[in-house]
């Protein structure tokens, strides 16, 4: 029996490695873009410009208030009606960027808001420009508040990449689906999928825990 499972595993594993590679690719690109966009939005969200603050607020509320699957469908099926036709892979990346940046925006804004007004005033009164105040004084301090939940958010984003399987991107979850209709060992297939996800996200979970303890100590 075990020998049979093993030979199945040997048979299907190249397929799963491809899926893992695709998942890693989507996750990596998404984490980078979500972080960049999320920080910019977060700075606007915590800033003094009321109009930008409101616009970002509406964006965040919309993204947080709708399921990710629906957002993917909008990007993949509705945007083409407005002239933006994307393949599944870029559509997946765009949807991830929209969703992830909204969550990271809130984490960043929360971190910046936690810094006292006095720090801004001290930096401003010495002649630093707004960008310098942020870069040299505010963000380095806010990072202590931002980092633990940010890494936690990364774990969620990695798992959320599984949702892009609904538009046919051949990532890990999709590979699981496709495999399971061809062979009878469903439990083994999705166990394997689960283990592979876990192998990417667990190091980040450990990092998040570590950061939380470290920041709490300081």
């Amino acid at each position: 029996m075990m020998g049979f499972y093993f030979s199945r595993l040997v048979e299907i594993y190249p397929f799963f490695l491809k899926g893992l590679w695709m998942t890693s690719k989507i996750a990596f690109i998404s984490l980078v873009t979500c972080t960049l966009i999320g920080f910019i939005l977060g700075i606007f969200r915590s800033g003094k410009n009321i109009i930008l603050k409101r616009i970002v607020g509406v964006y965040v509320a919309f993204v947080r208030g709708t399921p990710f699957v629906v957002q993917i469908f909008i990007v993949f099926f509705i945007l083409p009606e407005w002239g933006l036709q994307l393949d599944a892979f870029p559509a997946a990346l765009l949807a991830m960027a929209i969703m992830g940046s909204a969550f990271i925006c809130e984490i960043v804004a929360g971190g910046i808001d936690s810094i006292s007004k006095g720090q801004w005033e001290a930096a401003a009164s010495s002649g630093l420009t707004l960008a310098q105040q942020l870069r040299l004084v505010i963000v380095p301090q806010a990072m202590r508040v931002i980092l633990p939940p940010l890494v936690g958010q990364y774990v969620l984003l990695i798992k959320d990449t599984s949702v892009v399987s609904v538009i046919g991107v051949m990532e890990l979850t999709r590979v699981g689906w496709v495999t399971v209709v061809r062979i009878p060992e469903g439990l083994m297939v999705f166990s394997l999928v689960g283990v592979l996800y876990f192998s990417i996200s667990y190091p980040l979970i450990l990092l998040s825990n570590y950061l939380e303890r470290k920041m709490a100590l300081e």
């Binding site: 720090q119 009164s125 010495s126 301090q141």
Partner: peptide
């Protein structure tokens, strides 16, 4: 504003040193 502030030092009640 930057040039103006550069020639005026400001000391706060709560110091507001940069803790990092």
């Amino acid at each position: 504003l930057t040039k103006l502030r550069a020639q005026i030092g400001f000391v706060f009640q709560q110091f507001h040193l940069y803790p990092h």
